[in-house]
Design a protein around this nucleic acid. Structure first.
Lengths: 348, 348
DNA sequence: TTGTAGGCGTTATCAG
DNA sequence: CTGATAACGCCTACAA
């Protein structure tokens, strides 16, 4: 690919200065109308396009927005990405999409790469490091690059964040189950402290404990089962948990994906959902869920709005009309088919 | 956001030339080891990062790859996007994501914006214009920007393309239905010539006609029903079509999404699937489809591979180790629950 | 109305 | 081994 046409080339062909070309093309005064015509014509003929990089170098802004996320596999993030790409594009900026490094446990490489690109701002669903200090995010923080976290608490004051109300969501689920007569609930979690879900995981777990307390329900010593990705093994683990908690009639799962795994395990154990045990998901991330054999009762997180909020906040931070806020988007319970009136069952 | 540290600033602080800093940081010979140390230390301390824009200006390449697509809503493209983002990132390039303009009927604005950014290459699932000449794509063609089309025939020799074998896919569906004893098939299409599906639509429709001929099945005069997005209206249209074709026992749908709509319409008419009428989808784009009440028989298009092929081809075109190819990815029939042995039914 | 000069942050080509 | 100096494509002063 040969180098594209530059203003200098046009100027040379016309025997004029490069500056005249620049002025003419941008419609600024300082060039005769006649010369402007000639410049325009030649530019069109040669297929001239202004070089965004060169301008960015001068202006000190690139109109590039970094977007860091865990790929496009998780359906939960799709409405968020959709909203974001839409907002960013409308604003005349461009989205540089950056995937999580699937092996490393931080985002430092990706952040470095985005920083070298001189993005004007960053939207991120970050991996959660054990500590935010000393890592790539602290560099953004110090350099005052506008950053908005999505689905993750902001670790610095000058970072914006858009999260959803996990505590309230879990509370709604627990209240819902209680209203169905459930008294012994168990919480199904993802592996502790592991990305991608580290923050929401701890929030929902503690939210569960709090909600159970508020509702005055008994709390089992073994109220929690961590996910493992071998379905056989998970089924065995779940069987053991139910044996330890024979009165349990409802399982509150960290998210929709885990809920599906739990339901499969229950079915493998010959336990019916929701007749024998109720199950709840979280996120309402499953597409076409109303077509499922067993549509999941879950919490909807208004993901599209989350994306919109995040993009708009970031754009406002960049052009100085707004500052970093912490936005908490409300959630709502979606009652479908995996929860029902409690019917105590003896697991043995 | 203040301007980030530059080599010149480092040089000034150290009282040396900017060039020395450049050499030192890139580990090139021409600088004493001792000076290199001092440069490195100060650079780290100041949080120096090389400016990609400046380098791109000189090198004439940006390591930016444009990706033009219709957002993140259509599940069919997600594995493609996933594969692409993965490949691009591994290669040390970055993806600039560009959404379709939802109102215009061409991609010219987006292409212009990408061209001004000087992307090194473009991956696209383009809108299909009535003519490729005179539009934005012809400009890329003339300027010899590496381009790979996905799920769309390439209109120029120097464009690569990765498509899947629609003709064969439809043929497999027709053969499958015939083996179940179906003789009267109808084809359900999307609105003619309308993006996003213009090309695949015409391919599948003609593939259907061809396959029906090859299999020696009768072809009704009214073999086709176009999608409309009002479900009420669509149901009425479908009822009319079935009245015109009382012998029809199988409906071949343009894609999975349409198949779902068709199934809903059939159910609204009190027609059972697959007992009364068999329905096929296309694309295998539905997530968790095995959990549906009615898992769809469909054609799997190996979307992940399509993305990989496209990205790898584009990267090879960019670095000159490969050229534009036309890749046709094979498809395979996935038999699930919406097709069954034909049982003629009188629709009246 | 036009041209010249300087700079944005880099790399590359020269001399010294 | 080092330091000016000129690109890259563009913009903004300033001078003509």
């Amino acid at each position: 690919m040969a180098r594209p046409v530059s203003q200098t080339q046009i100027a040379r062909q016309l025997g004029i200065s490069q500056r005249a070309v620049s002025m003419a093309l941008r419609g600024q005064s300082g060039v005769s109308e006649e010369l402007r015509q000639r410049v325009r014509e030649l530019a069109d003929k040669l297929g001239y396009r202004d070089n965004f990089l060169a301008r960015a170098l001068i202006e000190g802004r690139t109109r590039l927005i970094g977007m860091l996320a865990n790929g496009f596999a998780d359906a939960f993030y799709l409405p968020i990405l959709n909203a974001i790409s839409s907002e960013i594009q409308q604003s005349g900026n461009r989205l540089v999409f950056c995937r999580w490094n699937q092996v490393k446990h931080d985002d430092d490489e990706e952040l470095d790469s985005l920083l070298r690109l001189r993005v004007d701002g960053l939207l991120a669903t970050p991996k959660t490091p054990t500590s935010w200090v000393g890592g790539g995010y602290e560099i953004l923080h110090k350099q005052k690059v506008p950053v908005v976290f999505i689905d993750q608490q902001a670790p610095f004051d000058n970072f914006g964040s858009v999260i959803s109300d996990d505590i309230d969501g879990i509370a709604q689920l627990v209240a819902h189950l209680k209203s169905f007569g459930h008294r012994h609930l168990l919480y199904m979690d993802v592996p502790a402290g592991r990305p991608p879900h580290a923050t929401t995981s701890s929030l929902r777990r503690s939210g569960f404990l709090a909600a159970v307390g508020v509702e005055g329900l008994p709390l089992s010593e073994h109220h929690l089962l961590h996910q493992c990705f071998d379905q056989q093994e998970y089924t065995a683990n779940l069987a053991a948990l139910l044996r330890q908690n024979p009165k349990a009639t409802a399982l509150v799962c960290f998210n929709d994906g885990l809920a599906l795994q739990v339901i499969d395990a229950l079915h493998a154990l010959g336990i019916r959902v929701p007749e024998d045990i109720s199950v709840t998901g979280y996120g309402d991330a499953l597409q076409n869920v109303e077509r499922f054999r067993l549509p999941l009762t879950t919490i909807n997180q208004s993901t599209h709005e989350m994306g919109q909020h995040a993009a708009q906040m970031l754009l406002a931070m960049i052009d100085g009309t707004g500052s970093a806020e912490k936005i908490r988007v409300p959630v709502k319970l979606i009652e479908r088919a995996t929860t029902a009136i409690a019917r105590p069952l003896d697991h043995q």
